[in-house]
Protein backbone atom coordinates (compact mmCIF):
# COMPACT_ATOMS: atom_id res chain seq x y z
CA UNK A 1 0.00 0.00 0.00
CA UNK A 2 1.41 3.45 -0.91
CA UNK A 3 1.81 6.32 1.51
CA UNK A 4 -1.36 8.16 0.46
CA UNK A 5 -3.57 5.11 0.85
CA UNK A 6 -1.95 4.22 4.18
CA UNK A 7 -2.37 7.80 5.39
CA UNK A 8 -6.03 7.77 4.45
CA UNK A 9 -6.69 4.53 6.34
CA UNK A 10 -4.87 5.80 9.44
CA UNK A 11 -6.81 9.07 9.33
CA UNK A 12 -10.04 7.07 9.35
CA UNK A 13 -8.81 5.08 12.37
CA UNK A 14 -7.90 8.27 14.25
CA UNK A 15 -11.42 9.72 13.80
CA UNK A 16 -13.15 7.79 16.62
CA UNK A 17 -10.37 8.83 19.04
CA UNK A 18 -10.31 12.48 17.87
CA UNK A 19 -12.79 13.75 20.46
CA UNK A 20 -12.18 17.45 19.79
CA UNK A 21 -12.22 17.13 15.99
CA UNK A 22 -8.69 18.49 15.60
CA UNK A 23 -7.63 18.93 11.96
CA UNK A 24 -4.98 16.24 11.45
CA UNK A 25 -1.79 17.05 9.50
CA UNK A 26 1.56 15.27 9.33
CA UNK A 27 2.75 17.44 12.24
CA UNK A 28 -0.20 16.67 14.54
CA UNK A 29 1.08 15.01 17.71
CA UNK A 30 -0.81 12.25 19.50
CA UNK A 31 0.09 13.23 23.05
CA UNK A 32 0.03 17.04 22.63
CA UNK A 33 -2.60 17.84 19.98
CA UNK A 34 -4.88 14.82 20.14
CA UNK A 35 -4.40 14.42 23.92
CA UNK A 36 -4.13 10.63 23.76
CA UNK A 37 -3.60 9.12 27.22
CA UNK A 38 -1.98 5.73 27.74
CA UNK A 39 -5.29 3.85 27.54
CA UNK A 40 -6.22 5.57 24.27
CA UNK A 41 -2.79 4.81 22.86
CA UNK A 42 -3.24 1.11 23.64
CA UNK A 43 -6.63 0.92 21.88
CA UNK A 44 -5.46 3.05 18.96
CA UNK A 45 -2.27 1.06 18.41
CA UNK A 46 -4.29 -2.18 18.50
CA UNK A 47 -6.65 -0.76 15.85
CA UNK A 48 -3.72 0.16 13.57
CA UNK A 49 -2.03 -3.21 14.12
CA UNK A 50 -5.22 -5.10 13.27
CA UNK A 51 -5.93 -2.98 10.18
CA UNK A 52 -2.49 -3.48 8.67
CA UNK A 53 -1.69 -6.86 10.29
CA UNK A 54 1.57 -5.55 11.73
CA UNK A 55 3.26 -5.19 15.13
CA UNK A 56 4.17 -1.73 16.39
CA UNK A 57 6.32 -2.62 19.41
CA UNK A 58 6.70 -0.27 22.38
CA UNK A 59 10.23 0.38 21.11
CA UNK A 60 8.82 1.54 17.75
CA UNK A 61 6.03 3.54 19.46
CA UNK A 62 8.64 5.48 21.43
CA UNK A 63 9.92 6.93 18.14
CA UNK A 64 6.47 7.96 16.91
CA UNK A 65 5.09 11.28 18.11
CA UNK A 66 3.15 12.62 15.13
CA UNK A 67 0.65 11.43 12.54
CA UNK A 68 3.27 11.82 9.79
CA UNK A 69 5.76 9.68 11.68
CA UNK A 70 3.10 7.01 12.24
CA UNK A 71 2.22 6.91 8.53
CA UNK A 72 5.92 6.54 7.64
CA UNK A 73 6.37 3.78 10.24
CA UNK A 74 3.34 1.84 9.03
CA UNK A 75 4.47 2.12 5.39
CA UNK A 76 7.85 0.74 6.43
CA UNK A 77 6.41 -2.03 8.62
CA UNK A 78 4.23 -3.24 5.75
CA UNK A 79 7.47 -3.85 3.86
Amino acid sequence: MDRAATAEKIAALIAPFNKKDIAVTDATSFAGDLEFDSLTVMDFVAAIEDEFDIIISMNAQAEIETYGQLVDAVVKLQG
Binding site: M42, E49, D50, D53, I54, I55, S57, M58, N59
Partner: peptide, 21 residues
Protein backbone atom coordinates in the same frame (compact mmCIF):
# COMPACT_ATOMS: atom_id res chain seq x y z
CA UNK B 1 14.03 -7.03 23.06
CA UNK B 2 11.03 -5.71 21.15
CA UNK B 3 8.21 -5.20 23.67
CA UNK B 4 4.66 -5.97 22.55
CA UNK B 5 1.83 -5.56 25.08
CA UNK B 6 -1.72 -6.88 24.70
CA UNK B 7 -5.01 -6.04 26.38
CA UNK B 8 -5.41 -7.51 29.87
CA UNK B 9 -6.25 -11.24 29.85
CA UNK B 10 -7.31 -10.98 26.18
CA UNK B 11 -6.40 -14.34 24.64
CA UNK B 12 -7.25 -13.28 21.09
CA UNK B 13 -5.19 -10.08 21.33
CA UNK B 14 -2.23 -12.11 22.59
CA UNK B 15 -2.53 -14.64 19.77
CA UNK B 16 -2.72 -11.94 17.08
CA UNK B 17 0.55 -10.47 18.30
CA UNK B 18 2.29 -13.83 18.47
CA UNK B 19 1.12 -14.61 14.94
CA UNK B 20 2.61 -11.36 13.58
CA UNK B 21 6.09 -11.86 15.02
Amino acid sequence: AEVVPFKHNDIEAMEKRLRRI
